[in-house]
């Protein structure tokens, strides 16, 4: 209980520090300014429509060069000689799927297969957005989530705590079976794996749940509500921010690395000590004077 109060106090101290007031005022000003601009400045919207068309065109150009070989000229998908999809149709997958696949470097993929590894992104943010806009124009699908969707910033203290707790329970029920209890990842059949979530951004986690990339099942909004997805992300972020109370984490993979540490470090050190204890010390040819 002592610690509870202290940490609660600490959290609020962070927000109510001397700078907090200034920050809140600045944020408020920016927000009102933003709303004013959005509401009043209608010409900007027109510009946006124009730029959206341009963006789709840019996306289509990129798509034809980098994606159409597998996904088809119009994203209709291409089948190999067995009738299986070389690349699945992209009509209706939505911008979220593109943002995830391209934004984590999974697409364009190097070779076909169920497991598509994450790698350094091929496209920059602007190009990814263009591709996403193009694929979204092919048919309605999940849009790229915004920060409001996956952030718990707007909630009160109690709501946040409840969100994190609930997110933890949802995570442990739906996600840990594959991704492990702290998101370190796990093995799947035939060389597949559920990736480590330690570095994945909130937006990409959200998109993965929403679209079910590759072999991962969907957790569409009818399955896990947007709030529940947000809570899962909040829990994962709370794990990242949590100190390692017990020391270094050994990769968070459970008893296997713990057993290895016991043998290699523990027994290794102790046997080393045993060898030192039983080793004969330096000898000399000198005789003891009065022996």
């Amino acid at each position: 209980m002592r610690l509870l109060n202290r940490s609660a106090g600490r959290l609020s101290r962070h927000r109510r520090g001397p700078l907090a007031g200034v920050l809140v005022i600045i944020a408020g000003l920016l927000l009102t300014g933003g709303i004013f601009t959005a509401v009043v400045n209608t010409t900007a919207q027109a510009d946006e429509t124009v730029s959206n068309t341009e963006q789709i065109a840019q996306g289509r150009d990129l798509f034809l060069v980098s994606c159409s070989f597998c996904h088809g000229q119009n994203g209709e998908g291409i089948r190999d000689e067995d009738g299986d999809f070389l690349g699945p149709p992209l009509i209706g997958v939505g911008a979220a799927a593109v943002d995830f696949q391209v934004g984590t470097g999974r697409m364009p993929m190097v070779q076909p297969g169920a497991q598509v590894p994450s790698k350094p992104e091929t496209f920059d943010d602007e190009e990814t957005a263009a591709l996403a806009a193009y694929v979204a124009s092919l048919g309605p699908g999940p849009a790229i989530p915004t920060e409001d969707d996956y952030s718990i910033e707007g909630l009160s203290d109690e709501e946040r705590e409840a969100a994190i707790t609930r997110g933890g329970q949802i995570f442990l029920t739906n996600c840990t079976a594959c991704h492990n209890f702290e998101g370190s990842g796990g093995a799947m059949p035939h060389g597949g794996y559920a990736p480590n979530l330690g570095e994945t951004s909130a937006r990409h986690i959200y998109e993965a749940m929403l679209t079910g990339p590759q072999n991962m099942p969907n957790f569409a909004n009818g399955n896990l509500s947007p709030d529940e997805k947000r809570d899962v992300i909040a829990y994962l972020y709370s794990l990242r921010e949590m100190p390692d109370y017990g020391g270094f984490g050994l990769g968070g993979l459970g008893p296997v690395p713990e057993g290895m540490a016991a043998w290699l470090l523990g027994i290794g050190l102790l046997v080393g000590f045993a060898i030192w204890i039983a080793a004969h010390t330096t000898r000399t040819t000198k005789k003891k004077v009065d022996a």
Partner: peptide, 13 residues
């Protein structure tokens, strides 16, 4: 919780 499980469910070594 009998309905939850984690990847890497192993006993001690």
């Amino acid at each position: 919780d009998p309905s939850k499980v984690t990847a890497g469910s192993q006993p001690d070594w």
